[in-house]
């Protein structure tokens, strides 16, 4: 009986130690098992498509496969919480966007804080491109500033909440008052913009590409991130927030791990993700999807993320 209880005791202790032991593995041995890649949104969306493209070539660069798991719900907070509930061993990655951050900032009692993440890399970033119909008084920045000053609150801009924060951040600095009309999806905002129900549209470059030059003129790239030469030419070389003398926010596609993950493992993931993004097949597929790779390694990405959370915190107050 004593022997039996000793065996049980040893098994229990091993049960506690072994998972910990795996999380203490040196970064050189990472990874030695399949990596769970959490997509906190439904299948088929932008984040999901990125995840599946990366998963297709992950084994060549990580030496292990990515198991993509869609865990949508509560504006991506369900997936985030599930990631936090797993061991901090680098075997659970999460890919996010500004959506969960915005939702957490808007909550009075958020279930988690935007800081509960260790960012390992930025894969890409998107900008809020402000667009007007052709031939309007507000179809360029100068005209828009003059019109908005003369008619405070009269101009209406539509878009998803996160893209409107980019516009709000710029307008606050320029001292301009316009009306923000939030939409549940960019597609619905585009429909109302084309139907003439709102004056301006805030959308990503890939959406605006389909509208310019026939249906609209780009007023300003509200972010701190210049467009690629090809896209800038297609969109009529719009000014960035920096060109106008203001700060801008860009919105990242970030990848993170549990905040307690050892730095060495987080660094290893960051480097491997950078290599994965350079893979021919990945580059080809992302290009086909109209996506742009703007890789930022761990430390720089973490600093940018912290700054973005601060900027968004001040911008969301304008949307309320």
């Amino acid at each position: 009986m004593k022997l039996f209880s000793k065996i049980i005791g040893a098994l229990v202790v091993a049960g506690f130690i072994l998972p910990g032991a795996s999380s203490n593995l040196p970064a050189a041995e990472y990874p030695n098992k399949t990596i769970t890649y959490v997509v906190p949104f439904g299948a088929g969306g932008g984040t999901d498509r990125w995840a599946r493209v990366l998963a297709g070539s992950a084994i060549d660069h990580f030496g292990q496969a990515f198991h993509v798991r869609n865990m949508p719900g509560a504006s991506a907070v369900v997936g985030w919480k599930k990631m936090l509930a797993r061991p901090a061993d680098g075997y659970t990655l999460i890919q996010g966007s500004p959506t969960p951050i915005l939702s957490l900032l808007l909550e009075k009692k958020p279930p988690i804080k935007p800081s509960q993440i260790k960012i390992v890399a930025y894969l890409s970033s998107f900008r809020a491109i402000l667009t007007a119909k052709n031939g309007k008084k507000w179809s360029d920045w100068k005209g828009l500033a003059a019109y908005a000053k003369a008619n405070p609150g009269k101009l209406t801009v539509g878009g998803s909440n996160s893209l409107l924060t980019g516009v709000a951040y710029l307008m606050k600095q320029a001292g301009l008052k316009i009306t923000y009309v939030p939409y549940p999806s960019t597609g619905k905002a585009v429909a109302d913009f084309l139907g003439g129900h709102i004056n301006l549209l805030s959308a990503t470059a890939s959406t605006i590409k389909g509208l310019v030059p026939e249906k609209g003129t780009v007023v300003v790239n509200t972010s701190d991130l210049p467009l690629s030469k090809k896209i800038a030419k297609k969109l009529g070389k719009p000014p960035t927030a920096a060109d106008l003398g203001y700060n801008g926010i860009s919105f990242p596609r970030w990848v993170g791990v549990h905040p307690d993950t050892p730095d060495a493992i987080a660094d290893a993931i960051s480097v491997k993700l950078g290599k994965l993004l350079k893979a021919k097949s990945v580059k080809k597929m992302l290009k086909k999807m109209g996506e742009e790779v703007i890789y930022v390694p761990r430390k720089k990405a973490q600093a940018k993320y912290n700054q973005m959370v601060k900027d968004m915190e001040s911008a969301v107050k304008l949307l309320k």
Partner: peptide, 20 residues
């Protein structure tokens, strides 16, 4: 769930998972 314009949650009975 989330207010369609203000994006703030309401009527969720204090349950975070009803935010959507």
């Amino acid at each position: 769930g989330t207010d369609p314009v203000g994006a703030v949650s309401r009527n969720t009975f204090g349950l975070w998972w009803l935010q959507d």
